[in-house]
Design a protein around this nucleic acid. Structure first.
Lengths: 117, 117
DNA sequence: TATACATACCTCGAACTTCAAGGTATGGAG
DNA sequence: CTCCATACCTTGAAGTTCGAGGTATGTATA
């Protein structure tokens, strides 16, 4: 819980954004998520397990994700999916991300752009 | 100097990206940069002085920025502008940023997108 | 003259996030 | 029976950013 008053979450919170997005439609487990991110981004982004599990746990603690244990081929997996809270949280985080990237692209573009506030 | 092997700079380094961008064409000073970022982004992004000055100094130390002191109205200002090294660095950082945001938008978009590689 | 505010520079400690490395355990292939 | 992929997890270190604070000058106001 970042108690930030200025920038929404700036550039941090990307792992959360990504995981929330993936778990919006699908039910997936940690190890699978690590690979999914890498595959879908063409290796542009690699989220290590050390990053993913803590985020998953925090999200679950906040009620944004629901977890259930399932054994497949003798393998114990923890499947996660977004709850209603998670869906709302995703919308919020995504909106923040959009605002930030948009703002940055304006600066990158040079200037003389309308910022109607 | 992040000695990172995986993700370029992920989401961090945004202040550097912004400053490098602004100083590409114009010669500006710290206090001015703080306000320029806020104005051009419609307050979406606020870079405090505590963030800007250290970045400015680091960039200068690396030879990416050239500084010169100038007194205006009895006010002492330190004007910065990008050097050739700074221009190259800007291009690199900008490319990284593009790759990251692009990758994220692919994940955000849902899936079923071609990741050739 | 004094007070206050905007300008203009700067530094520091706290907080947060992420990274890399390590640790455990099972199933399947050689 | 050894090795690798799967699958979970934690921890210390590193890096970045935030917010608060500190100094100093010019201008406006009272």
């Amino acid at each position: 819980m970042p108690s930030r008053e200025t920038n929404p979450s700036f550039m941090s919170g990307v792992p959360e954004l990504l995981l929330l997005s993936l778990l919006q439609d699908n039910e997936m487990y940690g190890y699978e998520l690590v690979q999914a991110v890498q595959e879908r981004t063409g290796s542009a982004i690699t989220l290590g397990e050390g990053v993913i599990y803590p985020v998953l746990h925090a999200l679950e603690r906040d009620g944004a994700l629901a977890a259930r244990r399932k054994t497949v081929n003798g393998r114990s997996r923890v499947y996660y999916k977004a709850t209603e809270i998670g869906t709302r949280r995703f919308a919020a985080v995504k909106a923040d991300w959009g605002r930030i990237t948009n703002a940055i692209s304006i600066v990158l573009r040079g200037a003389e752009h309308g910022f109607s506030v």
